[in-house]
């Protein structure tokens, strides 16, 4: 049963990922990306990482892809202008694909991933409660810094997008 579910979600994820890349319509590509994320979330559930699966659905599928769709509709991008490949970019793509193939081959030969030890306990991030405990004890300082990060990001958005008022600036 577990093996069937894994195969199902793995194939589903890969098909959707390919669909994201080859789809000429931006909205359809974004929808494929959404389904791809659902597939990854399914894989996480099988690893008992329920929190990660739900965070993926909430943050990426819920917020980020919605933002993508919003921007796509705002810009009104249509799939009509297919980019024709120039010689240079084709060469670059071939080199990149070659590097990827070499990387995968060397990984298959040198790197080895053994089956996980069943006795090995799941990580602290697997469920919400221990995760939250860690966040507010061990990682309290990084959480506080993230607060400052969000503050300066917000200020940055305001400063960089506010309309310049010449009368106010001249003071």
């Amino acid at each position: 049963m577990g093996s069937f579910l894994f195969d199902f979600f793995a194939i589903f994820t890969v098909i959707c990922a390919v669909g994201t890349v080859v789809n000429k319509n931006a909205v359809n590509a974004a929808m494929c990306f959404l389904l791809c994320l659902v597939g990854v979330a399914g894989l996480f559930v099988q690893l008992d990482a329920y929190l990660l699966a739900f965070l993926l659905l909430l943050v990426y599928a819920g917020a980020v892809v919605a933002l993508f769709l919003f921007i796509i509709m705002l810009l009104d991008v249509q799939g009509k202008s297919a980019v024709s490949f120039r010689r240079l970019s084709t060469a670059a793509a071939v080199i990149a694909a070659g590097l990827l193939a070499v990387g995968l081959c060397s990984f298959a030969i040198h790197g080895h991933l053994d089956a996980p030890n069943p006795n090995y306990a799941s990580g602290v991030g697997a469920a919400l409660k221990p995760y939250a405990y860690q966040l507010f004890t061990l990682y309290l300082l990084p959480v506080q810094i993230m607060g400052f990060l969000l503050l300066i990001a917000m200020l940055g958005v305001i400063v960089l997008s506010k309309k310049i008022d010449p009368a106010e600036g001249a003071k």
Binding site: Y139, P142, I145, M146, L149, I152, L155, G156, L160
Partner: peptide, 19 residues
Amino acid sequence: VMLFVALETVTIGLYILVS
């Protein structure tokens, strides 16, 4: 974790300052 969070704060601040 600390290193990455601090580094991101530096980098995001610099994105704003650069522009």
